[in-house]
């Protein structure tokens, strides 16, 4: 599968925030990503699209510094990954979190400040103010002292967003944040991304929802082990690219592209 040659051109007139060059990553002993290169300008909202097992989560984990790169480079503000601690906030998929853990909303959100607190230092007044403000901003103040296991999917997602917010990140990575959340939460999350954009925060979101990707994000990144296309949605979400990414899951109906959700669902169930 060939990668789009125009992939790194999008940063031309704007300062690059995140630059990914020829990155290859293995996950569970298998090659999950190969030769991925793209570049994200400051304050851009990017939707990462691809079939199940295409390496979306692997890409996010690599960007968060959780998986070693087999080759290639990732740089943020021109510095290699890990140079700025806590500059990247990563929200994993829901099933990766242990919801049995007896921690309250406030406790979880406060963890977002731990990166700024050295050994033996406890969260101070400033930290508590920031935590309270972000909990309020996400509309979960009334749940502040509830254990996270007792919340709904949407509420849990808001808790993790609040935690990412108190990290004061430059880059926010969300792996499948719209899965299992209600419409209200989805709407408030999208509004939240708009707000972050104004603050110059770059947001990368993986999703299965092509419509959402096309309408609510500045760029779309189409991935299937390799980068298939990257740029504004009208250039990326073409039938040719989608066929390349989704293969047999794509149906062309009178020129409109339909990704077969049923196949999608079955696959994700198997996994």
């Amino acid at each position: 599968m060939k990668t789009d040659s125009s992939k790194s051109a999008t940063c031309l007139n704007e300062p690059a925030h995140l630059v990914v060059e020829n990155v290859a990553v293995a996950y569970g002993g298998k090659a999950a990503l190969g030769d991925v290169s793209f570049c994200v300008p400051v304050g851009t909202r990017v939707a990462v699209i691809g079939p199940n097992g295409a390496g979306k989560s692997t890409l996010f984990k690599a960007l968060a510094g959780l998986l070693p790169l087999q080759s290639g480079n990732i740089s943020i503000h021109g510095f290699p990954l890990g140079h700025h601690e806590d500059c990247v906030a990563y929200i994993p998929q829901r099933e990766e979190v242990d919801w049995r853990f007896p921690v309250t909303v406030v406790e979880v959100v406060t963890m977002g400040r731990y990166g700024r607190l050295g050994w033996l230092r406890r969260p101070g007044r400033k930290d508590r103010t920031i935590v309270a403000r972000s909990i309020e901003q996400l509309g979960i103040s009334d749940l502040a002292h509830r254990p996270i296991g007792s919340l709904s999917g949407g509420q849990q997602q808001r808790v993790f967003l609040a935690r990412a917010l108190v990290q004061e990140p430059h880059i926010l990575l969300l792996d499948e944040p719209f899965t299992g959340v209600d419409i209200a939460t989805q709407e408030s999350m999208l509004a939240f991304f708009d707000q972050l954009k104004k603050q110059g925060v770059t947001v990368l979101v993986s999703t299965h929802d092509l419509k959402l990707a096309a309408t609510n994000f500045d760029h779309v990144l189409l991935l299937n082990h390799h980068l298939i296309a990257y740029g504004p949605s009208d250039q990326v979400l073409t039938s040719e690219h989608l066929m390349q990414a989704f293969g047999g899951q794509v149906l062309l109906l009178n020129g409109a592209v339909v990704v077969d959700k049923a196949i999608h669902k079955c696959k994700s169930y198997e996994e």
């Binding site: 968060a64 959780l66 601690e85 806590d86 990247v88 990563y90 994993p92 731990y114 990166g115 990290q167």
Partner: peptide, 8 residues
């Protein structure tokens, strides 16, 4: 994962 991203 978060501990790692926070540089711990």
């Amino acid at each position: 994962a978060m501990a790692i991203t926070l540089g711990k």
